[in-house]
Amino acid sequence: MTLLSTPRSTTKDVAIALQTSKASTRKERLFQLFLLFSTLVGLVILVVLLVDIVVDGFSSLDLGFFTDYTSRRPEDTGIRAGLTGTLSLMVLVALIAFPIGVGSAIYLESFAPRTWFTRFMQLNITNLAGVPSVVYGLLAAALFAYILNFGRTLITGALALVLLILPVIIVAGKESIKAVPPSIYQGAIALGATPWQAVYKQVLPVAMPGILTGTILALSRAIGEAAPILVAGAVFSRRADSEPWNLTEPFAALPVQIFDFVKRPQEAFQVEVAAAGILVMLFVLLLMNSAAIVLRNRYSK
């Protein structure tokens, strides 16, 4: 203040005023160090985890690990049942959840009347995205396995995961559609397009990268879940003669198999085989997240 209010301050005064104060520099440094430390905590844990898993699991990763079904002997066991089960789950969940989720996102964002009931529904959907996953497993077990009598089969497991990720897809879809400038919709409407034509041909293509990214990320969360499908009836292993694509047969999945490995008595299962299973699952998840990034970049060009 003094510097500003006294116009006759000499050059020397200014020089002093401009000097860096040691106290503030130290504070600044400390704060930055703290930020760096926080970042490193996450990073170090991740690296330790990865290294540990790779060291433990790499030796078990051979061709047989992918092509064999579960065995009592750790060296003979494989994750074929889980891998095929997870792949079929993924395809099924995507096929069911994507159209329903995107459909309701479009409805809620573009067509639903703006009433208290719509707002109430939207609030509920947002809340549903935060419900613990095991609850959806219980719901699926009760509703699909017993009341609708689907049994503890692949379709029941898939529907449990669909329930789990639907709210996430809807919320992501709504946000992506909302982010499209209204002028695009208005431009289409002003050309005599019907609301559906305007949304389907102009708004949706713009929103698609966001919707796809949201869906894939939700999907990759879903296939990493053990709790809901365990409750909904996933098994630890499948008979070798059963078909992984059959909707009405029992199913296995990667996270459930890993869970099974970890709780076996032999140390070889608990450490090496489980780590190998986790490696495979991490790879699948990484693949999906990369797909999401590629899709987003491709569309946004």
């Binding site: 695009i184 431009g187 002003a190 102009q202």
Partner: peptide, 10 residues
Amino acid sequence: GMVFQQPNPF
């Protein structure tokens, strides 16, 4: 037809 204040090409 209508033309808007801000150009709004698709």
